[in-house]
Design a protein around this nucleic acid. Structure first.
Lengths: 157, 157
DNA sequence: ATCGTTGCAAAACTTTTGCAGTCTG
DNA sequence: CAGACTGCAAAAGTTTTGCAACGAT
């Protein structure tokens, strides 16, 4: 362990942890650590927020002219399989991905006016999970909560 | 009013109300009530559950050989605009539509094993809406809650 | 008669797949 | 040096659009 001295929850710590997790995932499966995968991971973690695949491609291609979009799609799927990313679909036709930051569970507020997507947290969710297990015998793995409406800025205008 | 005698919340009542709403929506906007639109609406209401567009097309084409899928897509969008239907996307690439039945708010449990989608109700949601308004100044119009995991049947097997 | 609507086909879009050449372990 | 990976192009799949013929008001 190289970052013993750092506070355990720091940004850098988290990101390094995710990189480690990904490298481990690759080697465990006989997959390879390539230049492209590392570039995509760095860029993805640097953005540090949900991002559309085509946006990520654009950002990547700005620096790396011949990065194939197929590679980006394939790599993002690997991120999800390794557990360091989550796939998001808000139903507008674009798939988004975001880093999985443990202990930072959040959901999304989508503004119907400006289309901005805001993250928010709520404690009411965990209770809900328990309720579902009890009433439906359904084992909950993931929970997706999305609220649409009008955001503060757009209400004011 | 033709159905005065019926209990106000009955199936028939609800569906007739939705048909009326749709007809009113059309005439208000100078749009036309056509054979196809009425067939699609009847079939859609008869299914009475979320349905994939391509499934609905198949069902419709069984009876009406030359119903165009473009017409189905266009009509379903009209349903949403008129407020009698809701668009659902679970992120599997298929758009689904379901009738909006007021006072029957429900959400969805998606099983990762058998891919079945179950509807469920919970009371915890309304509190959550209020919480969001207070803490984020966000005016909530619609709320989408989706839980993924393993359903009762699949747990048993 | 006007203008919205339909059905067909083609286009548009995101995402996936096939393949020859390249690079990692 | 075997086999995984990349980048390109083409394919796949759903949804949208253009257009001539049709139909509702």
């Amino acid at each position: 362990m190289l970052n013993e001295g750092l506070p355990p929850g720091s940004e850098v710590d988290l990101k390094n942890g995710m990189k480690e997790t990904f490298q481990q995932y690759l080697s465990e499966r006989g997959l390879k650590s390539t230049l492209q995968r590392n570039i995509i991971l760095d860029t993805f973690l640097h953005i540090d927020r949900h991002v559309r695949v085509d946006d990520l491609c654009l950002i990547l291609r700005a620096e790396h002219r011949n990065m194939g979009h197929a590679t980006v799609y394939r790599t993002l799927k690997l991120f999800v399989e390794s557990g360091i990313a989550r796939e998001l679909r808000f139903g507008d036709g674009f798939t988004r991905y975001e880093p999985v930051t443990e202990g930072k569970q959040h959901d999304h507020l989508v503004c119907n006016v400006c289309d901005n997507i805001t993250e928010f947290k709520t404690g009411a969710i965990e209770q809900l999970k328990d309720e579902i297990v009890r009433s439906h015998g359904f084992q909950v793995d993931t929970l997706k909560l999305e609220l649409r409406g009008v955001c503060r800025q757009c209400i004011r205008q």
